[in-house]
Amino acid sequence: MKAKLLNYLRYIFVGLIVAMFMFPIVWVIMLSLKPPEYNFTIPPSFIFPPTLRHYWWSLVDPGYYNKHIYNSIILSSVATVMAIALSAPAAYAFSRFGFKLKNFLMGWYLGLYLAPPIVFLTPYYFIMKSLGLIGTYPAIWIAFQIFSVPLGVWLLKNFFDEVPRELEEAAMLDGCGRLRALIHIILPVGAPGFIITALFIFVFCWNNLLFPMALGGPEVKPLTLSTMEHFRMIGVTWNYIATGSVFIMTIPAIIFIIFRRYLVRGLMLGAAR
């Protein structure tokens, strides 16, 4: 039957796509397990005696990446919470109200996302220096907001838009205050949207390189920086880059896998209407 063939093709297509996109990731995982002699063989080696010594170096002795993993987590999670706290009210306002400066403000928020990040580096250094925050977590948490809040506002606004106004209007007609309506009605329905927004903001903070480079110090160095340091002018240690990359990929992946129900549920939000 035509439908069955189509379905077959669909599965093959998706399977191929997933394989192609996963391949570099799998390859990097392999690189992290290869003895250095196998890094650059001709032809590239798929079969090799795997070794854990690079992970040993990364996590145990000298445990090079431990602090950086911790830093990345702290930097990204707190920044995400801050961003959500700041952008949620604004997103709600943009979604539910029409007010004079609305379009201008929305455009301005979006425009910030366009600014080349480099322009912020030196001025932020000065600001943080005068606040005495260079090399501390708060400096980077604050700096991350410059792209997290615009992103958060836009994503959350779209998710709020998908929640029908009638829900809270009905609640308020019943005598609820707006705040209560928000907490009891909107939040539960919009929770998947919050979670997805938080996840995306988290990933963007997690992947960020420039702000920690400019404002940070050794105590707050995240994974992106420390992995990239192995790519030096005078020599590259690929296996350590590979282990660092694996750590960089794994933690958001784990979070996404944990929250995958919300991923799908958030995506299904509209269909449930």
Binding site: V14, V18, F21, M22, P24, I25, V203, W206, N207, N208, L209, T224, T227, M228, I241, G244, S245, I248, M249, P252, A253, F256, I257, R260, R261, L263, V264, L267
Partner: peptide, 17 residues
Amino acid sequence: GLICALLIMPMSVAPVI
């Protein structure tokens, strides 16, 4: 769900990496 979780992985690799 699993496919979605897998597909999100390339994005979670920092561009530098």
